[in-house]
Design a protein around this nucleic acid. Sequence first.
DNA 1: TTGTCGATATTCT
DNA 2: GAATATCGACAAA
Length: 273
Amino acid sequence: LPLSRRMGQKKRMAEKELQQSPLDTAQSPSPKEPHLRPASSLGPQRSIYFSSPKGHPARLGTEFFDQPAIPLARAFLGQVLVRRLADGTELRGRIVETEAYLGPEDEAAHSRGGRQTTRNRSMFMKPGTLYVYIIYGMYFCMNVSSQGDGACVLLRALEPLGGLETMRQLRNNLRKGTLSRTLKDRELCNGPSKLCQALAIDKSFDQRDLAQDEAMWLENGLLGPRRPAVVAAARVGIGNAGEWTQKPLRFYFQGSPWVSVVDKAAEQKNTQT
DNA sequence: TTGTCGATATTCT
DNA sequence: GAATATCGACAAA
């Protein structure tokens, strides 16, 4: 049997395992991730994970978003994004891939050079503010403002957890062309614009507050002490932004089948087996 | 499995 | 007029 074929089978098996039990294959947490400690270690009266302004018990509050873009991008991994539709349907997905955009000095950011326009105004608003914009004339991307002027985090992929059939419908309706083929689960949210379609997120969400909004919020993913390893890789689709093109500002759960783009070279560098 | 290409609107030059 | 933080169809291998 050719080696490539065998590797392919092994890879598929590993993915299947992850799909069935995403947390069992987890490795020990990185010491670089202080924001991911269990809530119990943060003291009883004021946990950043359970501040709950509007009655959602596990809702993450403003304190969670008030950290610099890189730690926030890492802290997003494993948390659960919840979208409540007008009819009450709740769509849920665990965040598995993000990108950090650092602000004026970041040549790949919309806020590079301190540019502030009508489009990117929400990048400069308080941490937790959504920055939703139209890309390539037909798709949306969803970002969350972080600490730091003009800094934010792009959400790139989710592991769908609930409301999958509604997501499939939304994706099919919004997709152009042949609307026949049934989308696989992994095709629902494995990309920044795909997750916006699946969760019915459009421009009307721009400038809303993820810590306060009624139609969408973030919940603690309760991943516990065992978490998947996090890969730091170059960002996707930013063209040539000089030295900023290669910087490892994209973060994803290693081995997750829900990630949009896998970077094998970065994984070698990161894990040092 | 990989590469190429068109769609399409807003922003910036 | 060019570029763009994308996606999906299709062809080739």
